Deep mutational scan, measured.
Amino acid sequence: ELVLALYDYQEKSPREVTMKKGDILTLLNSTNKDWWKVEVNDRQGFVPASYVKKLD
């Protein structure tokens, strides 16, 4: 499943990933309501769920 980055996000820990507004990311896990695991540029990590939106 793919998600769209709604905002820029700068990683604050090694478990997170940086994304730019408009990026298309692969959603790996959305079981946590606050932090979703995504893959971007061959890196996996977490981003705030409120910063991304699922693409239909």
Rank of each mutant, 00 (worst) to 15 (best):
D8K: 03
G22P: 01
P48G: 01
P14G: 10
Q44C: 09
D8W: 03
Y51R: 06
V52T: 04
S50H: 14
L55S: 05
D56G: 14
V38I: 08
D42I: 06
D8T: 05
W36E: 01
K54T: 08
V3H: 04
L4M: 15
A49M: 05
L25D: 00
D34Q: 11
E16Q: 11
Q10F: 14
L6G: 02
V38R: 00
V52N: 01
K54N: 06
G22Q: 03
T26Q: 15
L25E: 01
T31S: 15
I24G: 02
A5V: 10
K37M: 15
Q44P: 06
K53N: 06
V3Q: 02
N41I: 12
E39C: 12
L27S: 02
D8M: 03
A49S: 14
F46H: 05
L4R: 09
T18A: 07
R43N: 07
L2Y: 15
T26F: 14
T26A: 14
G45P: 01
K37T: 08
E16A: 06
T18P: 07
V38L: 04
L27P: 00
V17Q: 04
E11W: 05
P48D: 02
K33R: 13
K53W: 10
N32A: 09
L55F: 10
D8F: 04
L4F: 09
W35I: 03
G45Y: 04
W36D: 00
K21M: 09
T18S: 15
F46I: 07
A49C: 07
T18R: 06
L6P: 01
V47A: 04
S13G: 13
W36V: 07
D34N: 14
W36P: 01
V38T: 01
S13C: 10
L4E: 12
V38P: 00
I24C: 06
E11M: 12
A5P: 01
F46Q: 03
L28E: 02
W35T: 03
V38W: 00
A49I: 03
F46E: 04
T31Y: 10
K53Q: 14
R43T: 08
N29V: 09
Q10H: 13
L25S: 02
E39R: 12
E39S: 12
L6M: 09
D56V: 12
A49P: 05
W36K: 01
T31N: 13
A5L: 02
V17E: 00
D56M: 10
K33Q: 12
V40H: 15
R15K: 12
L28Q: 03
W36Y: 07
V40R: 15
R43K: 12
N32L: 09
V52I: 09
M19G: 00
T31L: 10
G45S: 02
V17H: 04
W36Q: 01
D23R: 02
G22K: 02
L25Q: 00
W35P: 01
V47C: 03
L25A: 09
M19D: 00
V17L: 15
K12H: 09
G45K: 02
I24S: 03
D23G: 04
A49L: 02
K54I: 14
T26C: 10
D23I: 04
N29M: 09
V47N: 00
M19C: 07
N32M: 09
S50C: 11
K53D: 08
D34C: 13
K33F: 09
E11V: 07
L2P: 06
D23K: 03
L25C: 10
E11L: 08
V17C: 09
I24R: 06
S13E: 08
K37I: 14
S13V: 05
F46V: 07
K37D: 04
L6W: 03
Y9E: 00
E1C: 13
S13H: 11
L2R: 12
N29R: 05
K37F: 15
T31A: 13
W36S: 03
N32T: 07
N32V: 05
K21A: 15
D56P: 13
A5H: 01
S30M: 09
P14E: 14
Y51L: 12
L55Y: 09
K21C: 08
I24T: 07
Q44M: 13
K20Y: 11
E1N: 12
T18H: 06
R15V: 10
K53M: 15
K37Y: 15
L6Y: 04
K54G: 05
V3I: 08
L6E: 04
V40A: 14
S50N: 13
G45W: 04
V3Y: 13
D56R: 09
A5Y: 00
V38D: 00
D23P: 01
T31E: 14
L55E: 05
G45A: 04
Q10N: 14
K33Y: 08
K33L: 10
L55R: 04
Q10L: 13
G22R: 02
K37G: 05
L28Y: 04
L25P: 01
L28T: 05
N41Q: 12
N32P: 05
M19P: 00
L4K: 08
V40N: 15
D42F: 11
G45N: 01
R15H: 14
K21S: 08
L27R: 01
L55M: 10
N29L: 09
V47I: 08
K12G: 08
Y51W: 06
K20V: 10
F46N: 04
D8R: 03
A5T: 03
F46C: 11
A5K: 01
E16R: 04
Q44G: 08
E39F: 08
P14A: 13
E11D: 05
K37E: 14
K54H: 09
L27I: 06
V38N: 00
L2W: 13
W36C: 04
Y51H: 12
E11P: 14
G22H: 06
Y51C: 10
V17A: 05
R15F: 13
S13F: 07
A5I: 02
G45H: 02
V40Y: 13
I24K: 06
G22N: 07
W35Q: 03
G45C: 03
R15Q: 13
D42Y: 10
G45T: 02
L6Q: 05
V40P: 00
R15G: 15
N41R: 13
K53F: 10
L28S: 02
